[in-house]
Design a protein around this nucleic acid. Structure first.
Lengths: 258, 258
DNA sequence: AAGAGAAATACTCGATATGAGGATTACTAC
DNA sequence: GTAGTAATCCTCATATCGAGTATTTCTCTT
């Protein structure tokens, strides 16, 4: 690394060796009361046949796009989710992964994103994918998990899950997993699925209604009771709060993480 | 974007147009009770003469480095902070900024990092910088702020500040701004500087001692009382908690952010 | 050397939030 | 109908918080 090269590089970065930038997406939804992540089966090496997060290269010169746009495009391309469905999907940046050896081809830096949506349909495998499908995260995180994800995607998925779990506590994010209108028990089911913990129905109900701006009543109720009985529940929609205060804390979290 | 090119690009990303990756660092420290950010004055175009966050290109092929290492290197190179000083500095990833037009030279994606340290010395301007210095953030955030930062660095700085303020609430991060041993009032001064709010001394004291694992007593006290009087304070060091529970909440935060 | 002022620490009290459990009531399934 | 389930509401003991006060030990000034 001579200083002449350094100087040129500072002035025109093309003098450095090439780096590629990808976006990967941890997409989460709840299906049949279980938290699922979207995975594709790779059709091309490296890691052909392995399961991986949907993602791909960011378009640079031609059709330049911002990172969130690239993430939305990859999500759509590789899974067949259409613009209409993407409309109700929450998308945010998760973090960037750049260990030198994370991809055997070359230096690839991946900007991971996190997406949440209400019960989404089965995807269609896109260009680069042999298959695409929703997979219960419990299957992936279990001790003897069978599917080993490609690259460092297991780590990215774990980080995404922890982010999602944490954000349920202090943001109204849970409503991104429900339909436009929802009942308090449905909202509770979201928390229980994502946290994988049972919550006290009465206390949860009281808490949700007492946090300003979390939900607002529609004045309506469901048409029928629950499938196993019980009265009709009142319907709510998301309120205008962007942060929940006081937060809705996870019960367990082994007291503190030390 | 023909599909042939897409195929090649998927297989070998070098077929896409070049993208460069930089790291930028929002470094914060407290000097004379005031929160300061580290800025350099650019010596080269673009934005020559403007102030900016320290940062630079990630080394790819030769001397490949992980992103946090690149951030630490840039911090050291551009400011003359030595390894010894960096030892006590907390460094974490902040986020990645990739708008297509954020740099006039070419498509540059910047992985921003956040660094905190105890009262750090004045930096030495490095290779690429005409000057380098600590600047009170109040000067930069004030309505009629004079120094307009280069690129999108004002946004990155603002995001870093908000991250720092938020993390003081639920992590023991404040101890990264103090010396190895500190008093409760010193810790309170950190919170007050970063949050720019006055805290109730008695309640803060009670709270800090009641959160498990936040601080542990050394059994010692300061040699002298405060400069304006008062008894000697007991000394503490950071405990083993990685999360504070219950959190130490900012008083104001205009109730909730809507 | 004494007195004033400041600050570290501790304590009190009312308001609020939380966890656990119970009570009531409206549904579904058989 | 009857049993079982679940939505909603309520109670109560405990924990936490904001605000204010008290005590004590310093430094600084005169």
């Amino acid at each position: 690394m001579g200083s002449e090269q350094d100087f040129l590089a500072a002035y025109d970065p093309r003098h450095y060796d090439p780096v590629a930038v990808t976006v990967d997406v941890v997409a989460l939804t709840i299906r049949d009361g279980v938290l699922n992540a979207l995975l594709i089966q790779r059709g091309q090496p490296p890691y052909a046949g392995h399961w991986a997060l949907p993602g791909g290269f960011v378009r640079a010169a031609d059709g330049e796009e911002d990172l969130p746009d690239a993430a939305a495009r990859e999500l759509a391309e590789e899974t067949g989710l259409t613009a209409g469905l993407l409309g109700r999907v929450h998308l945010e940046q998760l973090g960037t992964y750049g260990k030198p050896d994370r991809d055997p081809r070359m230096r690839i830096i991946s900007v991971a994103h996190l997406a949440f949506g209400p019960e989404l349909p089965d995807p269609q495998a896109g260009s680069d994918a042999a298959q695409a499908g929703w997979t219960p995260v419990a299957q992936l995180q279990a001790p003897g998990a069978t599917r080993k994800l490609a690259f460092d995607h297991a780590r990215i998925l774990a980080d995404g899950l922890e982010r999602a779990r944490a954000k349920l506590e202090y943001t109204p994010l849970a409503t991104a997993f429900t339909g436009e209108e929802f009942t308090i028990p449905e909202l509770r089911a979201v928390y229980e699925s994502v946290w994988d913990e049972e919550l006290h129905a009465g206390n949860f109900h009281r808490k949700v209604l007492s946090v300003p701006g979390f939900v607002e009543s529609t004045g309506e109720t469901t048409e029928r009771g629950g499938r196993r009985g019980g009265p009709r529940a009142k319907l709510y929609r998301a309120g205008d709060a962007r942060l929940l205060h006081p937060a809705i804390l996870r019960p367990s979290r082994e007291d503190d993480v030390r």
